[in-house]
Design a protein around this nucleic acid. Sequence first.
DNA 1: TCTAAACGAAACTCGACAGTTCCGGATATA
DNA 2: TATATCCGGAACTGTCGAGTTTCGTTTAGA
Lengths: 223, 223
Amino acid sequence: MTRVDPEAPAESLGDDVASDAAPARLGRKRDHTRDPEILEAAIDVLAETGFEGMTIDMVATRARAGKATIYRRWPSKADLVLDAVACMKASELDADHLPDTGTLRGDLVAMIRPKTIEEAQRKLRIMAGLFGMISTTPELADAAHAAIIEPRAAVNRALLRRAIERGEVRDDVDVDLIASITPAMVAFRLLVERRPVDSGYLVSLIDGVLLPAAGVVPGPAAG
Amino acid sequence: MTRVDPEAPAESLGDDVASDAAPARLGRKRDHTRDPEILEAAIDVLAETGFEGMTIDMVATRARAGKATIYRRWPSKADLVLDAVACMKASELDADHLPDTGTLRGDLVAMIRPKTIEEAQRKLRIMAGLFGMISTTPELADAAHAAIIEPRAAVNRALLRRAIERGEVRDDVDVDLIASITPAMVAFRLLVERRPVDSGYLVSLIDGVLLPAAGVVPGPAAG
DNA sequence: TCTAAACGAAACTCGACAGTTCCGGATATA
DNA sequence: TATATCCGGAACTGTCGAGTTTCGTTTAGA
């Protein structure tokens, strides 16, 4: 997405029309298959130690790369982290095929899966490790928000809009506000209260907060 | 509260019964009126730079103290910060005299004051600056939670319980969950979304999320 | 008034880490 | 095959900050 790539070769797209400012450099070419491995290693270290605790040596060791190899590709630690966060691969299957059970509650509950919970926890830990840097680097804040928070909020917004189209939810509710309930509460639970986020908590969040806010009356299945 | 004070004189409570292990040391006495000044300076620096960005020199300069004076009282930077967070003076008037307007909504809205919002933002910025350290120091996590989050959640719980006693709210709602809605959403709004927390947002939070979750139907005043 | 400790200020030690450079080996162009 | 650049690894430089020590001054107790 927001790749930095200070020395990206212009001929990567077309080498026959390399007329403009393409010096046609010789020598061994940079092995770009290492990029994602290094970025993943950076994300791993980030999740475990946070931005301040992370060292380039840790990333290099984890990626089985040399430190010079990393600095040949990213000009600084901050740039590496920014790129790593921006390139964090999006969830498992967020955008397109969402559950469609016919009810908002059914859709929301269907989104609860162990893998999803695990991934959310990992991402939130990464977010926590970035907080120190985030306050001074708006671009990092944007990247983190786009990679970690926005995908989940987008799912919630989509499910809510469908419920509105079905007539299950009134069309004057604040979709953005309601879609941010679960991300906010889950982040709070995990990072601030430091208590486990399990399916029980998520269900009580859906039934006790989100659905009431959306104006959905308890169906026959709810206690 | 959790003061460290490694060399606290035993005779601070009773100097006539200083029979046990009180060497009755001579020389100039430590000026304990400097303690709160140093701790406040630490909190200020913490709010501005976060734990990793904060240096003891900054704290010393801000408190117009020598670095040695600080290290004479706290054995390490971590201990200083832990003490500073634990000793953070509680809000303005949290615990005792809460608003009592007769309705849950009235009470919640009455809690919205510019000073309160400002203080909450400051505290949450401190919390953000602690995240890196919090993950490795549970005692700091507890101190931060007790000083920053718990007071506000306690107010919400008290207001909710009164509403339950009045019969305004059903007694089977999850009080703890509902009381954590505003802290969670405000923290999320400020730290993750990085958007302003004003009274408009707080009111929409109360009317759009908290009251529905509490099962309070919109009164005649609500649109 | 003498002594021991605290004070602010500044110099100091020491380890950690960002970033650089050098090495021997690999690899792609000319 | 010669050359320029990549690779992983390791040594190196420079800075920064935690924690310590020193110094001249101040203050409480004996």
